[in-house]
């Protein structure tokens, strides 16, 4: 199993360089076979977020083509696909983080509990309080561990007293599985923690504002296997209370942590289905080619 994935990594490097040359097996053409509509189980009942016909442009270049998808409440949905397939871009449209890129343009509708998040009336600040984000590289503020976690609650005015704030910090750190490791040094800088601890601190910071959805953009790509295992465990625990969308490069990770998996390819959403289905019985030939490591 491992060997297959190693190979997949190697090939992804070749594809990264932008060439359209066929992969080792020679048969799969990257451009061909893209379905006109996403195959698999795209729509679900009780959708937390409903994405309909979303196109994303960076200036002239179109990064996302006509993606429709439902995210169910309290599920973990993994987004996989080769580098540059638009999965990170797609994730960032879900809490409007791509607003910060001036040339970025989003078309279509994205609804959170039935409200369009790109509606002018909806404030981006409250959106991001409801849809939190954890980034690829751990990015704690250069402040104390306590202040890192308390920051969100402070700016949103969630706590009226110091005691309440202490409580929020403690529960958030406990939920992130970091409390026992840092409870004696809450006043030390968050940047002094190890990489894995930093990432869990960032997760604690995100859940301190009690979001409904947590977006994770390759949260383990900078971490060693032990730290990764801890984060994966944490994701499983968090999914009881939160809806989680995670972008990952590791197919094992997607298989381990997610309920559903979405496969992106060159800006198209090719296939969405229950994770087990995607990895054991993919419907589309591109998905199959990717998970069997025929291209990265």
């Amino acid at each position: 199993m491992n060997q297959v994935f190693d190979k997949a990594e190697g090939i992804s490097m070749a594809v990264d360089s932008g060439s359209r040359r066929s992969a080792e097996s020679g048969e799969v053409d990257m451009q061909a076979n893209i379905p006109s509509a996403t195959v698999g189980k795209v729509f679900v009942d009780h959708a937390k977020m409903a994405i309909r016909n979303v196109d994303v442009f960076y200036g002239e270049k179109q990064a996302i083509h006509n993606v429709s998808l439902d995210i169910r409440k309290n599920e973990v949905i993994a987004m996989i696909g080769p580098s540059g397939c638009g999965k990170s871009t797609f994730l960032r449209t879900l809490n409007r983080m791509n607003d910060t890129i001036p040339t970025c343009l989003v078309k279509g509708t994205i609804e959170l509990d039935g409200n369009d998040i790109y509606d002018k009336k909806l404030d981006v600040v409250s959106l991001r309080a409801r849809v939190g984000m954890v980034f690829q590289k751990p990015n704690p503020f250069p402040k104390s561990i306590y202040d890192n976690v308390a920051y969100g609650a402070k700016i949103h005015g969630l706590c009226s007293s110091r005691i309440e704030l202490d409580e929020v910090v403690e529960t958030s750190l406990k939920k992130a599985g970091l409390w026992s490791e840092v409870k004696d040094r809450l006043n030390q800088p968050g940047t002094g923690l190890s990489g894995g601890q930093q990432q869990r601190l960032c997760i604690a910071r995100a859940i301190a504002v009690s979001p409904e959805v947590i977006l994770m953009d390759e949260p383990c790509s900078a971490l060693d296997p032990i730290a990764t295992a801890k984060i994966e465990e944490l994701i499983a625990e968090l999914s009881e209370n939160y809806t989680i969308a995670i972008v990952t490069h590791s197919m094992q990770q997607a298989a381990r942590v997610s309920n559903r998996t979405a496969y992106f390819h060159l800006g198209y959403l090719v296939e969405v289905n229950d994770t087990e289905m995607v990895f054991t019985n993919p419907e589309h030939s591109l998905t199959e080619a990717y998970i069997t490591g025929r291209f990265g």
């Binding site: 910060t100 409250s126 990015n139």
Partner: peptide
């Protein structure tokens, strides 16, 4: 990344 972190938890 610091800006993203702040924006990501809803700082204006």
């Amino acid at each position: 990344s610091i800006r993203e972190a702040a924006l990501g938890i809803g700082a204006s």
